[in-house]
Write a protein that binds this DNA or RNA. Structure first.
Lengths: 265, 265
DNA sequence: CCGACTTTGTGATTCAGATCACATTCATGT
DNA sequence: ACATGAATGTGATCTGAATCACAAAGTCGG
């Protein structure tokens, strides 16, 4: 029943890449600048999110069906339309989840942070993946095959509930994005919302809130539903108005109130 | 622990209304033209969706914590921002779930059909309702308080899994709408998507697919993120192009392929 | 059958932002 | 340090659809 998918999965991921340099034939290796975290048990994030407070037995059981892998930037964990093979528990790195239209336009649904579980909705419902998951920062993830995962859930009511909560969270996030895309009057408003979102979860230091902009303008455009040029323009208008300071990939929030005002216009 | 919320809840719902006629002081009554379905056990939809295949004991347990009510058109089941009081299992009627921006713009996230469970994400995660639920057709629903529901889930692993599946489904739907709103180039495209969505679940008779348009143009606009006038115009352009026939509130699909072509433009 | 409101239909106007077309600056690998 | 491709910055143009402003149909209660 529980064939170990890990190797096959690992290879597969490294095959499909976005654009640019080709990686097809390269062997898997540790992502640049990251030491490998061996077992999922030592993964710093696993415990405190989806699978916290599990009995040691359950943890062991989970460890058995889990297989860790590393993925380089550009790797694809799964592709929209493909049927759900299982879930990926993201331990380190960052993954972009998006959908594409026939003509190539892309809409980024969300960015996943360590601790999140990818492919959960599809795995649980048995439907095909509704999004494509592409690694934007070298990442490590634990894979659990759909079969194993579902069995684990069935044996483990508390975890099922926890999974439901995660899904609720995810839904919440999706709605938030729908709101920015659907209810905004202007690109400025969307951008303001985006910046506030990005900085919302950041801890401030010395009274200043900063955020790393992992995304290109192109990608920001794909998140808020505008064009790349508009992102560039709006962002520089924000700088002129002293709402934010952009230095390299670091964005510093200067006038939160000002941005919030734009949000409500 | 399990105080019965039903009466309080019932009264509350009837209080807040959208617009128009005032119902505040009126006593609760059966929705026009619907006989009341007494117990949730006889509710025709309950069994086959979320809570199918339960042991008789579980069904009984569920029946105990459930309270049925009827809601007239315009009633509000819950309001965005309010913290989750519990779930509503929709037995009959139709409910509109939407979010509103400060300036009054509305985005309809989805229309709920009988058998669906409303308020699930919030109840499970313990976060406030992220949407407002307004009855558009006289409805009947079974309410289960958050406490009771969560306890029920904890005692009942299989149901928790089922809940997770529902949530996955809901997420899926949300993504579908995000796609139409975010990836479309034109209002025509959005409208084509919308019409196809509406007719997708309908059974065809005599080789023709029809769908009841419960929504006003205004509401359609709020679903696909355009203006009312644009909906009117696009819809009549569809009629001119013989893609659909609209007669009263009945929409007949005439040229599915044609609409699909618009979808991919 | 008659007002009164809600919904739909249409024209005229206007403008935000998509798109195109480059110039410039930044990374990166060798 | 150079070269090459990616990412950003900026102007010019053009159009889809929002908005405004009514007219025409429907709908419903009394």
């Amino acid at each position: 029943m529980s064939e170990n998918h890990s190797a096959q999965v690992g290879r597969f991921h490294l095959v499909s890449r976005g654009k640019g340099h080709t990686l097809e034939s390269q062997p898997m290796r540790a992502p640049y600048g990251l030491e490998i975290i061996e077992s999922c048990l030592t993964c710093p994030h696993r415990e405190d999110r989806l699978f916290c407070n599990l009995s040691p037995a359950s943890v062991q059981r989970l460890a058995n069906i889990t297989s860790a892998s590393s993925y380089p930037k550009g790797a694809t964990l799964f592709v929209e339309g493909q049927d759900g093979r299982g879930v990926f528990i993201l331990c380190a790195g960052r993954v972009k989840l998006y959908t594409t239209s026939i003509d190539g336009k892309t809409l980024i649904a969300r960015l996943s942070e360590p601790g999140e579980v990818l492919g959960l909705p599809s795995t649980v419902t048995g439907m095909p993946y509704e999004l494509t998951a592409e690694v934007v920062e070298p990442s490590q993830a634990n894979f659990v095959s759909a079969n194993d995962f579902l069995n684990f859930l069935r044996e483990n009511g508390e975890v099922a509930l926890r999974v439901a909560q995660q899904l609720g969270q995810t839904y919440h996030t999706a709605l938030a994005e729908m709101r920015t895309i659907g209810l905004s009057h202007s690109a400025e408003e969307k951008m303001a919302r985006f910046v506030l979102d990005m900085t919302a979860n950041q801890k401030e230091e010395k009274g200043v809130v900063k955020a790393k902009l992992t995304l290109t303008h192109e990608e920001i455009a794909q998140m808020i539903g505008t064009s790349r040029e508009t992102v560039t323009r709006v962002l520089s208008s924000f700088r002129k108005k002293n709402l934010v300071i952009v230095k390299g990939s670091t964005l510093t929030l200067k006038d939160k109130a000002g941005l919030e005002r734009l949000t409500q216009s």
